[in-house]
Every structure is written in C-alpha cells, then in structure tokens.
Nucleic acid binder design. Structure first.
Lengths: 227, 227
DNA sequence: CTCGAGGCAATTGTCGACAATCGAGTTGAC
DNA sequence: GTCAACTCGATTGTCGACAATTGCCTCGAG
C-alpha cells in the first residue's frame, strides 16, 4: 500500500476536496485501473484521511461516472467500454455543436483573437512535429475548451467541462492509440474559426458537428479493425 | 420543526437513498423555498436521521444543481433565475434534438406504436380539457421521456432524465403560469412522431429543435412582458 | 459429484462527539 | 460618527466506533 502525496500547494478548502482531486487524477491517468475494485478503508489509508471525506469524494466521482458504487458491495473504478465512448461522442456532437453556434454570436472579439493565436501556434508546432500526437492532443482539448467557454452559456460550460470531459480525457489516456489525424483535424479547426469570425452560427455548428462526427467514425473504424 | 414522513413503502436500500428522494421531492415541489438557507442539523432532525446520510443526500442534490453548497458556510436551495432556465432550454434543444435523430433509427416498432397511442390519448383528453394545462403538462413530459429513451443511448438518457429534467420540473412547478400553447405543442408532437415513423432522423431532429426553440422563445417573451 | 443451506469474515452504512472555520455583534480607537 | 479588530456563537468538517448487510466458504444431503 503506497501513501499518496496530496496537493497541499493549492490549499483547497477541505480534505474532501483534496482527496477528490487526487482520486480523479489517479483515475483519469490510469493509476487506478478501470474495473478494479477498491475498498474504502484502503483508500482512506492511502490518502491519509478518514473514511468521511473519502466517501464524499467518492460520491462526487460517482456523479461524474468515474467510479461505480453498488450499496453494501463496494466501489469499482469505471470500466471504459467502447460502446460507451461512442455514446459520448454523440453527446459531444450535440453539445459542442450548440456551443459553436452560440459562440459565433457571443464570443468577444478578443476571445476570437485568442483562438486564432492558438491555431497559429498549432500550425508552427504541427509543422515541426508532424504526427507526434501528444501536444496536438492537448492543443485539441484547448481548442474545444475555448469554444465551449465562448458560448457564454453557464449550464453548457458546466456540463461539458465539469462533467463530460473528465470521462473523455480518461478514454484518451487509456486508448491512446487513436490517431486523430492531426492535419485534417487542424484544417477543420481552421474552418470552424473562420465561421466564428464571420459570426455564422449555422455554419459553425454544422462544421463542429461534422468535425466530431468524423472523429467518432474514425474511432468506430478502428474498433472494427482491432476489437 | 415538522417531522417528515419518509417513503418506507418502497424499501430503498439505505437511509441516504430515502433522504435523497424525500429532499428532492421537497425541493422540486417547492416545499423548500428556492434560495432558502437550510442547516444540516435541522434537516437531519426533520428527516429523522443522522447527519451522515443527510450529507450524502446533499452531495447528490448538489451534483444535480438542486442545492448549492459553500464550504464552511452552508446550504441553499437552488435559486431559480430566469436566465438559467433559458440556458437549460439551449441544452434541451441540442440534446433532445439528437435524441430525436437517434430515436428515428433506433426506436423499435412497438415503441413507436406506444408513442402513437400516447398522442391519441392526448388528443381525446385535450379535446375535453382544452387549455387546462396540468394533465397536458405531465403528458408533455411523458412524450419527451419516450423519445429520449427511444434514442437507446444510455449516456444521453442518463444525462437528460437523471440530471437535467429534475431542474426543469422544478421550474415548471414554480413558474407554473407559462402557457405552453397545448394545441400548437400537440401538433408539433404529431409531426415529430410522423418523422419517427418515416425513420427520418434529419427531419425528426429539426422538428424537435424547432419545438423546443419556440417553447424557449415563448418563455422569453413572457419574461420580457412581466419580469 | 453437484447443489443448496447456513455460518463467518469483510466491507459498507450509520451514528454521536469533537475540532475547525466562518459570520455577526460588540467594543474600542481615531 | 465611522471604521477596524476582536470575541462569541453557530454551523460545518472530521474522526473513530458500532451496527447491518453482503459475499464467500464450508458442510451436508441427495
């Protein structure tokens, strides 16, 4: 049993907060294997706290679908099944499509400048790294985050950033091999930004939906080949 | 301080489950006024349990945005602001639009028969009750539930039914006066079902989005007139 | 040998008490 | 008279112990 170092730097208010963040990181990054069964007592010892705050952290993780609890039985790390990932992509298509539509009318000029600068940085970086996907992948997340926030719709932001994206990031860490075609994705990003700049909500939504839909189809094809 | 009767009938597994359901009902139905500050000790006494299970219930309600917690300060019943309701309708438009699209291809024939029967019942009932909105409103929820489930997308169902619709029901109970134009809504429902029957996903999504979008605009107009 | 019932260990659910933190009211100085 | 600091009360956060439920293992019968 290994003791885990908690983030004391950012002095989060309560012990439950610290445990929650530490556990979420451990799950998303794969330190705790998907499907593994974990006991409350073990975890409490490992994180150096009592079972009270730990249970609170677990409840929050459960509401984010990162762990699964069954009463009187125990806790399992969320198992990532492929069909669940596909389902998530339909949610993303609907929600981020709407985010792009709203962003086209609600983004400020400086926000659009910011996302253009981000793309410019990607272009240089991508020219260097070609297909080394890691940085591109984080950059991809950054791009989507900016558009989501650009919607200026609090409920939408909270839903996507606060609840859904942790699950998606977990899948990315685990199934790291899905080549998400950086060059093509980059071109699609460019077109979406053009639509935002033109304040064309209809077009922005359509392009975003195609972007996510083709990413989903790409994954589905990979799954068919190597299940 | 009034003792609250808990549902002992359906013998829910844990005390936390019972408190959660009772509290959720109390909030959605307005027994606990929005924005009111409540103390853990009071609630624990009122529901005849300890603070442990109560805190678990509060955690779950927080993740559904029915209560707001600030550390070391306390709990407030979620205050329903009008702009938040509008934001929710954009989520509904995106998600239920997608649900309708998926339902058009994934609904079974018997599910479609069921929703047609539901509409037929509404037609007779509506002819009788004209604009008495209550039953129509519950029927409206039933209609939407069926299409959501018809998507056969677990993540989408869980998100809409398990997380979003409780907030929407809360608003319905509070702002009960929004005449949601039963006749027009009924016609729109009919057309959506026609699209489902024709297995036309594009059309079903478009009609559902218009349906929800016009409901939102209707609310926005009411808010402008009587803020 | 297989199946079912019963007991046992382990884990979770629940409780009450203690400690930490925040907000309000009061008191004092400028 | 106003502002700031301090004290006090109340509320939440945390802990450890006890009770309840589950799953597994053993034992016995067919």
């Amino acid at each position: 049993m290994q003791q885990v170092e908690l983030d004391e730097d950012r002095n989060l208010r309560t012990a439950a907060d610290r445990v929650f963040e530490a556990l979420q990181d451990a799950i998303v990054r794969g330190d705790l294997k998907p499907g593994a069964r974990v006991g409350e007592t073990d975890l409490a010892l490992r994180f150096g706290t009592s079972r009270g705050p730990l249970r609170e952290a677990l409840r929050r993780l459960e509401s984010r679908h990162l762990v699964e609890r069954t009463p009187h039985v125990g806790i399992r790390i969320a198992s990532l099944e492929q069909h669940a990932l596909i389902e998530l992509y339909f949610l993303r298509e609907a929600l981020e499509g709407m985010a792009a539509r709203l962003a086209a009318t609600h983004m400020t000029d400086s926000e659009i400048e910011g996302i253009k600068a981000l793309l410019a940085a990607h272009e240089k970086d991508e020219a260097l790294k070609a297909d080394t996907a890691y940085f591109q992948r984080e950059g991809d997340l950054d791009f989507h985050y900016r558009i989501i926030h650009g919607s200026h719709n609090g409920a939408l932001i909270e839903l996507l950033v606060g609840e859904l994206y942790h699950r998606i990031r977990m899948y990315r860490y685990q199934f790291s091999a899905y080549a998400n075609r950086p060059q093509r994705a980059f071109r699609e990003h460019q077109r979406i930004v053009e639509a935002l700049e033109a304040r064309d909500g209809d077009l922005a939504e359509m392009l975003m939906r195609r972007h996510i839909s083709s990413a989903r189809q790409n994954i589905e094809n990979h799954l068919k080949e190597s299940p």
